[in-house]
């Protein structure tokens, strides 16, 4: 709640009495540590340094562990050959299809389920059960149905996204404070208005979490499906490299996957949350320990 966090800030502030006469370098450091790009990317610098050091000292045999320098070289090499862009495009296309259909189906079905108490109660165990069958377990049967194809991969990703999202929408709708619904109705809102103006935004924090969870699972399912279906994509590249013992491409694949997820998070998910849920004060900001 706003009051709490205000109090929190005040306490944290008074805990640092040396603020006013701080020396210049300390003030510069303070300013730097407020910068969000520095705060998110800064910690990676020493970690990459450490990684490099461990690789350079050959703590582990180079056939199993390589440094960031080799990864960068490999990256440039694959970029030049055009292998990486092709695989990347394949992976992203699958993810886009899967996530797109998954989001559309999950949100619509979620609201349809959530709006009636009876439907919700009847569908809840089924949702739980389908959510419980780990998505990757669907891959074998999907391969039997659709063969080793894009459809098979997309099906699994859609599946992965839909169920966490439906669960999130249902529990989000349940979390909307009843008082807000009553307030809207006593101000003259009809059922449809209540749905659009109260239920949907009220369920949004939970939906945002659901989208994150769903995409997180979908992402993993994609990698697994690419390894298993094995025709193209980043997951395929990594496992193919592993088969021939090329550790540098495995490392590269992991770095690429990590960076991709980070970009997806930083460019799409985080701005959306900042503009809605956080702006409305429904979630305490992630970095709220300042």
């Amino acid at each position: 709640m706003a009051v709490d966090s205000a109090e929190h800030t005040r306490k944290a502030g008074s805990g640092r009495p040396a603020r006013a006469p701080a020396p210049l370098h300390r003030r510069a450091w303070l300013r730097l540590s407020r910068n969000s790009a520095f705060r998110t990317l800064g910690p990676f610098v020493p970690v990459v340094g450490l990684w490099w050091l461990i690789a350079a000292l050959e703590v582990f045999p180079p056939a199993f562990f390589i440094g960031p320098d080799r990864v960068v070289v490999e990256f440039a090499e694959l970029l030049r050959k055009g292998v990486l862009p092709g695989y990347l495009a394949d992976s992203l296309e699958r993810l886009a299809y899967g996530a797109g259909f998954g989001l559309a189906i999950g949100i619509v079905m979620g609201f349809l389920t959530a709006l009636s108490l009876r439907v919700r109660k009847a569908l809840w165990p089924i949702l739980l059960f389908f959510q419980a069958i780990a998505d990757i377990a669907w891959l074998p049967i999907v391969i039997v149905w659709f063969g080793f194809s894009l459809t098979a991969v997309t099906f699994v990703i859609v599946y992965t996204v839909v169920f966490p999202l439906m669960l999130a929408v249902v529990s989000g709708v349940e979390q909307v404070p009843r008082e807000l619904v009553l307030a809207a109705r006593s101000l003259g809102a009809g059922r449809l208005r209540v749905f659009w103006e109260v239920t949907v935004p009220g369920a949004l924090p939970s939906i945002a979490t659901g989208v994150r969870t769903g995409l997180g699972y979908g992402w993993r399912a994609l990698v697994a499906a690419e390894i298993i279906v094995g025709t193209s994509g980043i997951g395929f590249m990594m496992f193919d490299a592993r088969r021939v013992g090329d550790v540098s491409q495995v490392f590269l694949g992991m770095v690429v996957l990590g960076i991709l997820w980070y970009m997806l998070d930083a460019l799409i998910l985080a701005p959306f949350e900042k503009a809605t849920v956080e702006r409305w004060g429904l979630v305490r900001g992630m970095e709220d320990d300042e």
Binding site: R39, F44, V223, R242, L257, W261
Partner: peptide
Amino acid sequence: PLLRFSVALAGIAWIPI
């Protein structure tokens, strides 16, 4: 940020390595 990065990557992506 390091942990968030690792959470995003954890699990299946580690299978090859």
